[in-house]
Design a protein around this nucleic acid. Structure first.
Length: 729
DNA sequence: CGGATTTAACTTTTT
DNA sequence: GTTAAATCCG
């Protein structure tokens, strides 16, 4: 332990050894925050003899939690019963354990945003709230915001003023009611329901207070009101609460995060000991200078000055491009020159953008240059339509009360149960006061139904029942494979080689793989366990930072990560800061903090880019450079004009730039493409189901290149070359 | 009742 | 440029 402590600086050591009572650690970017947290936990266990199972540490991503746990175990050994997890996974676990005593089903499901919106649409239909007037999505957002601020439906109803708020006031209570009926929780419930239960059942609260006598919270600046309340409930008696955060990195205000939580911590606990970690171990002095010059434009911050004794480093490169395509080409070109000049590998680079939509142009440019890249985030794997379809089956099997999932699959794949039949069954269920699922079994008793749907409904009902019976008899892996086989979902996507279909097929196989992997590695594998993991896992959690590829992600996702070289494209008014933030000082300040987060991800070099024109909503628009560019201290900016582009290093075809890349990431295109007929733009082809068409576009190279074909009638379809079933004519 | 084709609407960031 | 909802036809 002595040895571990001596590797920390004085401030860090003080923060680690202040073990009891309320502690606030204001940790600037790159100041060794994770190191302090993990060492602190190890210190509690080794020096203070605190039992590991009496410590609860909460983070915002599973990846951060896993990393923290691994690092602590390195110091104190594994299998200690230490609790490290996200807020959501921690309280999902507690809810699961306590469900029965609260009258909940321990097999409850978890609704994501898509499920929430489906449910809200149904409710709006039932309550005759016109969905064309009020967007279900907006209503969902307001409900979520209320829940995070701990405002219950009754309270909200009293404040509703305009027609939109009236609509929310109608939907909100019914939404809560139906979640209960369906025996599911949404994300917000995982935080708010435990609060309610702790209030209503003091004995249970007492149990967890005793159990978690030391509580640590990471990224405290991103907690919302509900999370704040929960943390305070747990720490109220023992007051051994340590929170770590950086008000300059608060970027989740739009999700209900309340920056006051960290700003007022010392008011909440007057005997707080506060530690400031201001020595930065990550970035060069120039990068810190740039970051500081930007963030100091914000008012209402705690105020920190990061310093480091490292090298000055290179200046920040600023590049102006004609449009988004050229911007992407410049990124590629600059990656190439960095590789030559500094012998860097692909994994040293990250491109961090404001919106997911920006990834497309970058992706195209990287692919054309033959560079390996990986996109983190965007549409999450488990949110893809075909994946959610299969998951919906598994959800109904574990929780037949889940009507959102039931309605999703009752006629998918199509089995002849349309809207009319479903309506009849729903009415029957309502009249008899039974669950929709049980009403399926009564199909014979519903007189208005005709013979064909009746048979379909009963067959579907018996199939689900069969799997419900199998849940405890076979492994989740076997069950999922058998199920996918029986519903024949793979066949739906097997027929044609369109790009979408091949992707869907691949995704379902990937899902089956995930289930198999889960069944092999989990301590106590169960279908419900898998579904919970799926609901709470994000892309960043599964991102493999070891593979050698350029990383593309949003600035939000990048929080907590670091890269030698960082590119921030799209620095334009209306994109960054984003249009909707520009009317309030507060939200522009949040955008500015986001820019600060981006700048402080870089260890050695930053490139800022903007384009005069950008393709958006299907058309070009003129752009002005972002105000944030002007806020960067001009003395650290290096304006890279076209003359400085080093023309010899501009984008070249992959075959000539072999020195730039590693052999294993560069497939031998020529040998790979030999077994596929030579397809070219303008060729006439004949497809087995779409008929005659003309190739209008070819993207990429090799067997996975995408072929766009326009068929007679003007329909355009995209195919993957190696699966495409057409003849050249 | 299902399937196919056409139309509309939309993109801020996510546990 | 993508996906869901609406409409029409067999």
């Amino acid at each position: 332990m002595e040895k571990i402590l001596s590797s920390l600086n004085i401030k860090q050591r003080e923060a680690v050894s202040a073990s009891d009572g309320p502690v606030l650690i204001l940790a600037g970017a790159g100041s060794g925050k994770t190191r302090v947290l993990t060492t602190r936990i190890a210190y509690l266990i080794r020096e203070k003899k605190i039992k590991p199972w009496n410590i609860l540490a909460m983070t915002f991503t599973n990846k951060a939690a896993a990393e923290m746990k691994a690092r602590v175990e390195d110091m104190v050994g594994s299998g200690t019963g230490l609790w490290v997890g996200t807020f959501h996974s921690t309280f999902a676990k507690i809810l699961r354990t306590e469900a029965l005593s609260f009258g909940f089903n321990p097999g409850f499901g978890i609704y994501d945003v898509d499920d929430q919106i489906r449910l809200i649409k149904t409710i709006m239909g039932d309550l005759h709230v016109p969905p064309d007037q009020f967007a279900p999505k907006s209503i969902a957002a307001v409900i979520s915001k209320n829940k995070n601020s701990l405002i219950v439906p009754q309270q909200y109803q009293q404040t509703a003023g305009n027609p939109f708020e009236e609509a929310v006031a109608q939907v909100y209570p019914e939404y809560q009611h139906r979640l209960r009926i369906n025996q599911v929780f949404d994300f917000d419930d995982l935080i708010t329901v435990p609060i309610r239960l702790f209030h209503e059942y003091p004995a249970v609260l007492e149990k967890y207070r005793t159990r978690f006598s030391y509580v640590l919270v990471d990224e405290y600046q991103d907690t919302n009101r509900a999370q704040y309340e929960l943390v305070h409930l747990l720490a109220y008696t023992h007051r051994n609460l340590c929170v770590v955060g950086d008000d300059d990195q608060s970027i989740y205000g739009w999700r209900g995060a309340d920056i006051r939580n960290i700003l007022d911590f010392e008011k909440d606990f007057p005997d707080t000991r506060t530690f400031r970690l201001e020595q930065n171990y990550r970035s060069t002095r120039n990068i810190l200078k740039a970051a500081a010059s930007v963030v100091e434009k914000n008012v209402g911050r705690k105020g920190k000055t990061l310093w480091c004794d490292g090298p000055e480093g290179e200046k920040i490169g600023l590049i102006e491009a004609y449009d988004d395509r050229e911007e992407a080409a410049r990124v590629v070109e600059r990656i190439q020159s960095e590789i030559i000049r500094h012998k860097r590998a692909f994994k040293d680079f990250a491109v961090l953008y404001r919106t997911n939509a920006q990834s497309r142009a970058l992706e195209d440019a990287l692919r054309r240059a033959g560079m390996s890249y990986v996109i983190v985030g965007g549409l999450r794997f488990y949110e893809r339509k075909e994946v959610k379809d299969v998951l919906a089956y598994l959800r109904v099997i574990t929780n037949p009360n889940d009507t959102v999932s039931l309605k999703r699959i009752i006629n998918f794949p199509v089995r002849g149960i349309g809207d009319v039949t479903l309506g009849r069954i729903e009415r029957h269920a309502l009249l008899n006061g039974e669950r929709l699922f049980d009403a399926l079994g009564d199909a014979d008793a519903i007189s208005e139904m005709t013979e064909k749907p009746r048979k379909s409904v009963l067959a579907f009902y018996r199939m689900i029942q069969k799997y419900q019976d199998l849940v405890d008899k076979i492994t989740p892996n076997e069950l999922a494979h058998t199920l996918v086989d029986e519903i024949g979902i793979l066949n739906l996507y097997k027929h044609d080689a369109t790009f979408e279909d091949a992707g869907r097929l691949e995704n379902i196989r990937e899902l089956l793989n995930a289930i198999r992997e889960y069944a092999e590695t989990a301590e106590d594998p169960s279908l419900a366990g898998f579904l919970e993991q799926v609901a709470l896992v994000t892309d960043i959690d599964t991102w493999n930072d070891q593979s050698n590829a350029v990383t593309l992600m949003t600035l939000h996702t990048a929080k907590g990560l670091e890269f030698p070289v960082v590119y921030i494209p799209g620095l334009e008014e209306g994109l960054f800061p984003v249009m909707r933030s520009m009317d309030s000082t507060e939200s522009v300040e949040e955008e500015r903090r986001l820019f600060y987060v981006g700048l402080t991800r870089a260890k050695e070099k930053i490139y800022l880019l903007w384009a005069n024109n950008r393709y958006h909503y299907g058309e070009y628009s003129y752009r002005m450079p972002s105000r944030f560019i002007k806020e960067v201290d001009p003395s650290v900016l290096d304006i890279l004009t076209p003359e400085k582009y080093e023309p010899k290093e501009t984008v070249r075809p992959p075959s000539r730039s072999r020195v730039l890349t590693e052999p294993d990431v560069h497939p031998d295109y020529e040998s790979l493409s030999q077994d596929i007929p030579e397809l070219q733009k303008g060729m006439q082809v004949l497809h087995s189901s779409f008929g005659k068409g003309e190739i209008i576009r070819i993207e990429g190279r090799g067997p996975n290149r995408k072929i766009s074909v326009r068929f007679s009638g003007g329909r355009v379809k995209k195919f993957i070359a190696q699966y495409a079933k057409f003849e050249i004519c």
